[in-house]
Simulated scan of single mutants.
Amino acid sequence: MASEVLKKGGEVTSEVWGETRGFDFEGMRFGMKAWRASASSARESGALSAPIVLVHGFAQQASTWDKVALSLSRTGVECFAFELAGHGKSARPTVGDVPGREAFDLDFQAQALLAFCEAVTHVAGRLPVLVGYSMGGRVALQAARLVADDLRDGGQIGRIALRSSAAFAPCGRSGRLDVAGGGQRDTAATSADDAAQVPEARAPFVALVLESAGLGPADAASRGALRERNFAWAARVRGEGVSAFMDWWAGLPLFESQQYLSADQRERLRASRLANDAESLALSFEQAGAHAMSSQGESIRALCELAAKGIPVSYLAGELDAKYCKVASTLQAESQGAVSCRVAPAAGHNIHLEQPEAFGAILEEVVESCTPKPAAP
């Protein structure tokens, strides 16, 4: 259960604000990046905008969110990117490293993401909007399913222990954060009086946005086919190496619309893909591929349950991405409208890369809907 893992807590360590940092969870180092609100209107009229937690896709890093996050930060919205296992500044295993292999497990990464959301809540003072793209959407959806399970069973997700939770605080003169012993909170030692003040069970995020994310296997046959495909891809990247594999990957029909990006954008995209190592990419396929997800029916049920509890759920697909437009259509029908499904014009699989302004505007709408209006004077 997610609540049991969250009670164990996570630890955040950092050096310079605004650069990629680290988030430690159960012995695994995950990279992260933050964009603090810079607009003078960040606290306008006493309103405190919900922050945003962003989770990238396969073979990407936190920097994929730079354009969207910088734009949002200028409007007063703080953004925090979480880097998946083996990506960006997150720890990368060596071949045959069993503990490292386990860190790629889909459920483990989902649990780490929930703990990260709690850390962001501690820093920003508000529950975040959780946004996941493609593989990141897969992890976010698995996290949502864990939360729905906990809430359904009466779990207490709000009762967690965050070690060194003050680590998101501003840097001192040395440019480093002193996190030793700071901000510690251990609910296992909570007194009876304190226990009475513990908030009711809640989700660690105030809204969920899924961008071009799968919903899980429809049945056992589909799960088996996905597993066979993902293990074949893992073998391919190990055998061919990252450069050759990424040349093939970029040519998949899923990414056809990216040919219309500028030459500079395409070059930066390729460079970010080549920054990965073969073993991390292979483990991502094997341990966190679509075959490892909950079933489609379980996923849709979880999303509907969160929506019924007042947690808005949105699904975004690009107009030029036929595969995920079909996913959006299925979700719209199966959820009977409980999940808001949108199609972004002139965009393919990666909406936030191909149409960042439109994507940012949608996130602003979600944040605004989750931000309480200031009380009248």
Score class of each variant (00 low, 15 high):
206 V>E: 03
207 A>D: 14
208 L>D: 08
211 E>S: 15
212 S>C: 14
215 L>M: 15
222 S>N: 10
222 S>F: 03
223 R>A: 15
224 G>L: 14
226 L>W: 12
230 N>C: 14
232 A>V: 11
233 W>D: 13
235 A>M: 09
236 R>H: 05
236 R>G: 06
237 V>P: 12
239 G>K: 07
239 G>C: 12
240 E>V: 05
240 E>I: 02
241 G>R: 09
242 V>H: 15
243 S>V: 09
243 S>P: 01
244 A>F: 03
244 A>H: 06
245 F>P: 02
249 W>N: 11
250 A>P: 06
251 G>N: 15
251 G>C: 08
252 L>I: 07
255 F>P: 00
256 E>F: 02
258 Q>Y: 07
259 Q>C: 02
259 Q>M: 06
266 R>I: 11
267 E>G: 05
267 E>C: 12
270 R>N: 05
272 S>W: 07
273 R>T: 03
273 R>L: 13
273 R>F: 12
275 A>L: 06
275 A>T: 04
276 N>G: 05
277 D>Q: 06
277 D>H: 01
277 D>P: 10
280 S>C: 09
283 L>N: 12
283 L>S: 10
285 F>Q: 13
286 E>K: 10
289 G>N: 08
289 G>F: 01
292 A>M: 08
293 M>F: 01
293 M>G: 08
294 S>L: 00
294 S>P: 01
295 S>D: 02
296 Q>S: 04
297 G>D: 13
298 E>N: 07
299 S>V: 02
304 C>W: 02
305 E>N: 03
305 E>R: 04
306 L>G: 07
308 A>E: 13
312 P>D: 00
315 Y>E: 14
315 Y>Q: 05
316 L>D: 10
316 L>F: 12
317 A>I: 08
318 G>M: 03
319 E>H: 05
320 L>T: 03
320 L>I: 04
320 L>H: 06
321 D>Q: 11
321 D>P: 07
322 A>I: 08
323 K>M: 07
325 C>N: 00
325 C>Q: 01
